[in-house]
């Protein structure tokens, strides 16, 4: 069972977490084309590589960001949203 590290609560089995998906910037809903909007809503980046993802530690309801290499199955670091200096 893989381990994941919550920046506030520490390293735990991945069963204590929920994965939301990759951070995807929302295009301006008032300005973008229908196609651009549909791509945002329905398409996901399937390429392997390092992705910034939303994860939640459910016992504490802590949302954070994980930088995860989906090709090597390795988490580089985790931090609270906005803390990625």
């Amino acid at each position: 069972m893989k381990l994941m590290t919550c920046p506030v609560n520490g390293t735990r089995p991945v069963s204590e977490f929920v994965y939301w998906g990759e951070i995807r910037p929302m295009p301006d809903p008032d300005a973008c084309s229908d196609d651009e909007w549909a791509a945002y809503v329905f398409n996901r980046n399937g390429a392997p590589g390092v992705k910034k993802e939303w994860w939640c530690h459910t016992p504490s309801n802590t949302w954070f960001i994980a930088e995860r290499d989906t090709e090597k199955d390795f988490v580089l670091r985790t931090y609270l949203y906005g803390d990625d200096r």
């Binding site: 609560n9 204590e16 459910t58 016992p59 504490s60």
Partner: peptide
């Protein structure tokens, strides 16, 4: 203190 999961439910 710790917040974790015990027998499937969240506990402090």
């Amino acid at each position: 203190l710790v917040m974790t999961s015990m027998v499937g439910v969240g506990v402090t």
